[in-house]
Structure formats: C-alpha cells, structure tokens
C-alpha cells in the first residue's frame, strides 16, 4: 500500500477516534488525545529548532560568524531558574524584559488600531448620506440611510455607556441607555453565533468529505 493510502487510513482513524468523545469519554478517545498531545509537543520541538533556532540563531552564529549570538544561551537559560527557589527571581528579570517589550508596543497599537475605528464612527454622515445616492443594489432611500446612521451612532453611544464602571447607573435615563446597550450587544452576539455556524459547518463538511471521498471513496 503506498504511503498516501496509509496516511489516509491513519487520518480516518484519528478523525473517528476523536469524534468518539461525542458519544462519551472513552478509552479510544483517551488514546488519540494522548497521541495528539505527544505529536503536538514533538512537532513544537521540531519547529522550534527548524524554523526559529536554526535559521535565526544557530546559522547566523555558526555560518555567518555572528559570535555574539552565543550570549543568548545564558540569558535564555534564565527561564529555567524557576526550578530553584533560590534563583527563581532571575526568571522574573527575563519576564520583565518581555513584559516591557509587550507593553511598549501598546501606544502604537492603540493609535494604529483604534484611530481608524474612531474615524469610522465620526465620519458617519447624518446629512446627505452617500448611501442615499449610491448606485446598485444597496442604495437606500434618504430616510432609511439617515435612520441607519442615527441608529449606528445610538448603538455606539449606548454600548459605550454600558461599559462605564466607576459610577452606579442609578439615573433612569442612564440605566435605560445602558440596558439598550446590553440588548444591542446580545443582538450582535447572536449575529456572531449565526455567522460562526457557517464557519464550523464548513470544517465539518471538509472532514466528512474526507471520510466519504478520500477514505471510503463513496462520494464524488
């Protein structure tokens, strides 16, 4: 049997083995679960060497002569000081470095991601919305275009007010705005749910197609 065929058989067993948890937790599932975790970790080690350490560290150091990369070894080993109560604090030093690098990017991230969002809200036109004059299937009457845009802003404001934490939302007006905000959020979550269903079904379709077509060869 050629390798491709064996691969298909292994893949089919793996698929059915994991699916068995849908019936109930059982020994077959446990077998494939442990196989999976083992393969995942082995592959992680392989990737770490093959895709990161070899091309980004070992080759620059040994082939291109950048000897200073050797300093990465003692620094990298600082992660492992956590196993010694006496030296554990040193691992915090290297984490401090990572926390700093992570946190330092926050300003640019904020400007780069949030500014366009703010722009997209403030440029919602309440007067002469272009949707009213746009050609094609999605053109709207001026009234509905204005209605949509007012609603858009109302939703933004309501949801934002729902997320104020530092005062009790006792005022009736504030409370009802924030309640509206929560309802709209539920509406949005429903939309995400409905949309996600399609994504997940697609994957199932892919798998079942694999079982019926590639493995059993009973579907076109």
């Amino acid at each position: 049997m050629p390798t491709e065929r064996i691969v298909v058989w292994i893949a089919a067993f793996c698929t059915l083995g994991l699916y068995s948890i849908l019936y109930r937790e059982n020994k077959v599932f446990r077998f494939f679960e442990h196989l999976y975790i083992g393969l995942g970790t082995g592959y992680l080690l392989y990737l770490t060497w093959n895709d990161t350490l070899k091309p980004r560290w070992w080759e620059p150091m040994v082939q291109e002569g950048r000897w200073w990369w050797a300093c990465a070894v003692p620094v990298g080993l600082m992660f492992y000081t956590v196993y010694s109560r006496k030296h554990a604090w040193m691992s915090r030093l290297i984490f401090g470095l990572f926390f700093g690098l992570t946190a330092g990017q926050a300003f640019q991230r904020y400007a780069a991601v949030q500014f366009p969002l703010i722009r997209s809200v403030v440029s919602v036109p309440l007067v002469n919305p272009p949707e009213a004059t746009a050609p094609g299937a999605y053109a709207l009457s001026p009234y509905s275009a204005v209605f949509n845009n007012v609603l858009f802003l109302a939703i933004v404001v309501a949801v934002m007010s729902y997320f104020f934490f530092s005062f009790e939302q006792k005022n009736k007006a504030v409370a009802s705005v924030s309640k509206f905000g929560r309802y709209v959020l539920m509406f949005a979550f429903g939309a995400i749910f409905g949309s996600t269903i399609m994504a997940r079904l697609s994957l199932l379709i892919g798998r079942i197609h694999f079982l019926l077509h590639d493995w059993l060869n009973i579907a076109p």
């Binding site: 995400i192 949309s195 996600t196 994504a199």
Partner: peptide, 22 residues
C-alpha cells in the same frame, strides 16, 4: 466566516477593500 464578523467595521471604514466570507 468567524473572522468576517469582526472585519465588517474595517470594510465599512474603507480600510479593507473587499472580503471573502468563509
């Protein structure tokens, strides 16, 4: 199709020019 929902704001703001949904 999951990521599409999050991307609609960017579509609307013109930051992306088109999208294939799932």
């Amino acid at each position: 199709a999951v990521m599409a929902v999050e991307a609609y704001p960017f579509l609307r703001s013109g930051q992306i020019q088109g999208m294939l949904n799932g």
